[in-house]
């Protein structure tokens, strides 16, 4: 109950922050640009719209996830609005969980709107329903899962560092997440404890390699339902892990 109350309030705060809408508008503009590009290059309109659209959803989604994730929590600590919340019968884990649920809802709606914009653009370039559209939605769903992980990381970092640093850390991990597999391959090619440590570190990073299906989807490839299940479970467990770490960091944090 407490968690939901905090989640609702977080969602309301994000929704009243008009900053949140501008990326959505921008994504729609990007999709519009994609349509223009698609008309210039013959034969690959669909492909260009999907590739550019999914890139825009990722890019703006990540910006919102990091801005909102670090902003709302670190701001509560900095501006001390937290004092009057934590002096009530609210446990610290409830605060972290409530914040996350609120942020996740914000991201889901934000990403969902962008996904709908993308579908509308697709409808424009290739009228009539196509079964491949469903895979585009799955690609958007994978992006949303990535955003949830990034948002969890932003929340974790903002429990012990400044909003700016937390933002930098989360963005760095988002980038690393796309290279985690390559990094692990490099680390595994060597031996010794340094390499083993590096391999371990790549497991702590988010591993996004299985989430990036944009290129395949643009070519009308389907996505195995097993991959959907696998990615969903991974996103939940990774986010769970990060949130537990955030709860631990926050429980020990002194609010000066």
């Amino acid at each position: 109950m407490t968690v939901l109350t905090i989640a609702r309030s977080t969602f309301r705060e994000a929704a009243r922050d008009r900053v949140l809408y501008s990326p959505a508008v921008f994504a729609v503009l990007m999709t519009g640009a994609a349509i223009l590009v698609g008309q210039v290059s013959i034969g690959i309109e669909r492909q260009v719209v999907i590739n550019l659209g999914l890139a825009a959803v990722t890019f703006f989604g990540v910006i919102v996830a990091i801005l909102v994730g670090t902003g709302l929590v670190a701001k509560e600590i900095q501006k001390r609005t937290l004092y009057t919340v934590l002096s009530r019968p609210v446990e610290r884990w409830q605060f972290v969980a409530g914040k996350f649920v609120g942020l996740a809802g914000t991201l889901a709606i934000n990403g969902g709107l962008m996904g709908l914009g993308l579908l509308a653009a697709l409808r424009y370039v290739s009228p009539g329903f196509s079964g491949a559209d469903a895979w585009v939605l799955v690609a958007v769903y994978f992006i949303l899962l990535q955003l949830l992980m990034v948002c969890g990381l932003a929340l974790l970092f903002s429990t012990f560092s400044s909003p700016l640093l937390a933002g930098v850390f989360s963005f760095a991990l988002f980038v690393l997440g796309n290279f985690a597999q390559e990094l692990r391959d490099v680390a595994q090619s060597g031996a010794g404890w340094v390499h083993r440590l590096m391999v371990g570190a790549t497991y702590l990073m988010p591993n996004f390699s299985a989430f990036n299906v944009a290129a395949g989807v643009a070519h009308g490839e389907s996505i195995a339902s097993l991959l959907i299940l696998h990615n969903s479970i991974y996103a939940v467990t990774y986010t769970g892990m990060v949130l537990c770490a955030a709860v631990l960091a926050f429980e020990w944090r002194e609010l000066q």
């Binding site: 597999q181 497991y203 591993n207 390699s209 299985a210 479970i233 991974y234 467990t237 892990m241």
Partner: peptide, 10 residues
């Protein structure tokens, strides 16, 4: 669990 899933992906 997440390490197990990543290994499976690999």
């Amino acid at each position: 669990l997440s390490v197990a899933l990543v290994r499976r992906t690999d």
